[in-house]
Simulated assay, not measured.
Amino acid sequence: MATVVRPRPLSPHLSIWKWRVHMLVSILHRATGSALAFGAVVLFLWWLVAAATGAEAYNIFYGVATGWFGILVGVGLTLVMFQHMMSGIRHLIMDTGAGLEVLASKRLATLTMVASVSLTALTWAVILLTKGV
């Protein structure tokens, strides 16, 4: 008696799916959470070690943190924080049962991107204009 071997079904691969904004926001939510955790730990540890080491080490930290590279990192972490927060708010809305339709999901996902960029620009405009950097 011969057994018929049927090919097993394959899982859909990324090449089959079309990229949509709600897919991007979902992936970004995970990535931004990791980036926030890693970035916060690295910056906090550098600040703590610099403060504990002495004035010279702290001045180096302060110089980098307030220089162009520090501002660039600050803008990046601010954007990551707002993206993660807006995506979390989107998930809270979806947990209530609202925004689960495809069109509503796309709109909410697009809104998270627009809001995070807008809030980052507003935050850094206030920081840079009030500090005179």
Rank of each mutant, 00 (worst) to 15 (best):
S34H: 13
L119G: 01
M113Y: 02
T110N: 12
M94D: 00
V102A: 13
H84L: 01
S116M: 09
M85S: 09
S11G: 01
K131L: 12
T53S: 13
G67R: 09
F61A: 02
R30H: 12
H84Q: 10
A57Y: 03
M86A: 10
V5S: 08
W124K: 03
K18D: 02
T130V: 15
R20S: 07
R8S: 12
I27E: 05
A31T: 09
T3G: 03
L10A: 09
A109T: 01
A57F: 03
L129M: 08
L43F: 11
W47F: 13
G99R: 10
V4E: 13
S116V: 03
T78N: 09
L103I: 07
I127A: 11
S15R: 11
S11C: 00
A40V: 10
V133Y: 11
E101A: 13
R8G: 05
I93A: 08
R20F: 00
L111W: 04
L100I: 12
I93T: 08
M86E: 03
G63D: 09
L14V: 05
G39C: 12
W124V: 02
G88D: 03
A35L: 14
I93Q: 09
S118F: 12
I127C: 08
T32D: 06
L10Q: 08
F82H: 04
N59K: 15
R90L: 02
A98R: 15
F69M: 14
L119W: 06
A35T: 11
I16S: 11
L122F: 12
P12G: 05
M113H: 08
A2S: 11
S34W: 13
L43R: 11
G88Y: 05
T78G: 09
G76A: 15
S118Q: 01
L72G: 15
P12D: 06
H13E: 05
V114L: 13
A55G: 03
A104W: 00
A2Y: 05
I71S: 11
T53V: 11
